[in-house]
């Protein structure tokens, strides 16, 4: 009997496919998310848009909040650790969190190295903007990927850019001659063995969700059409006027992402979504997606 194998860690993410993972900051929100049909919740101290507004250093959530959320729901609970923060990750693992997000939404603890995620029993999800970044994270042991997008903006444009980029690069690798893979690995900064595996499988070896800017049911369906395996919704839900209704609408739009009549119905009278931020107005140092290496 073996725990913490790649199959067990990646398999956990496979079970989340086609679903929505929602950011929550307390037990009450977690229950609303579960009731709406979320496949998992991300327990946080503050949602990304509030982290953005608050400024300063963003760290792992207070373990009491994580514990409160774990006790409130039967679906899996995820939590965020800072990039490269070995102890935050080990603390969350010790608490029995089901998945850790080594996340650029928090202030990085290490500006050179990510966590060696292969060493943990708990599975990790990491952000990526292109195939090189995706493959490096898988090489370190990430069992699930997500686009970085631009968190807390309510603006889908960066997540769209990232999913298109990764998928275009995967298609390119799949279509390449084997002789060309080593040079491609060098150019991407990706482990060669992973490109060989991607070519063989015809896809990434782990699931890739959309994250960072999903604000409406139509945004969620858009990301599914572009090939995301599922959707993370951060600030969108609990910053909207009617979170329960909004959450249900996002779940349904993700499942039936090609049913436009349904999405039209779901999108009616949802109340105002979060206001959102135009990316070009963000100062370079305020762009969370630049964090990670």
């Amino acid at each position: 009997m073996k725990t913490g194998t790649d199959r067990v860690k990646r398999g956990m993410a496979e079970m989340q496919k086609g679903g929505v993972i929602m950011d929550v900051v307390n037990a009450e929100q977690a229950k609303i998310a579960e009731e709406a049909g979320a496949v998992a919740v991300m327990a946080l101290e503050r949602v990304p848009s509030d982290i953005r507004a608050a400024g300063g250093v963003a760290r792992m959530a207070d373990p009491r909040i994580v514990e409160e959320v774990m006790n409130a729901v039967s679906i899996p609970v995820m939590a965020k650790a800072r990039i490269g923060h070995i102890v935050e990750a080990r603390v969350l693992e010790a608490m029995g969190v089901d998945y850790i997000d080594e996340s650029e939404v928090l202030t990085p603890a290490d500006e050179e190295y990510h966590l060696n995620k292969n060493e943990y029993t708990v599975p990790f999800v990491c952000g990526c903007r292109d195939l090189g970044e995706a493959a490096r994270r898988i090489g370190e042991g990430a069992a699930m990927l997500r686009t970085k997008g631009e968190p807390g903006t309510g603006n889908i444009v960066e997540a769209v850019r990232h999913i298109r980029k990764v998928n275009a690069q995967v298609r390119k690798v799949v279509g390449m001659h084997e002789d060309e893979l080593m040079t491609e690995a060098k150019l991407l900064g990706a482990p060669y063995e992973l490109l060989v595996e991607i070519k063989k499988l015809g896809r990434l070896p782990v699931v890739n969700f959309a994250a960072g800017g999903v604000a409406t049911p139509a945004d969620a369906a858009l990301m599914m059409q572009l090939g995301a395996d599922g959707v993370f919704v951060g600030s969108g839900i609990f910053k909207s006027e009617n979170p329960a209704k909004f959450a249900r609408a996002i779940v349904e739009a993700t499942t039936h992402f090609q049913d436009y009549h349904l999405i039209a119905e779901l999108s009616k009278e949802l109340g105002a979504p979060m206001k959102g931020i135009e990316i070009s107005t963000l100062a370079p140092e305020a762009r969370m997606q630049e964090r990670g290496w």
Partner: peptide
């Protein structure tokens, strides 16, 4: 539900399944 524990307790094991397999590689996830 979740009767083997949380994700960190998820595991794989070889088990016999009557009439189907002597050594089925079973993956248990939550």
């Amino acid at each position: 539900r979740n009767s083997f524990g949380r994700q960190k307790d998820s595991f794989e094991a070889d088990i016999p399944i009557a009439g189907i397999a002597d050594d089925f590689q079973a993956v248990f996830i939550r």
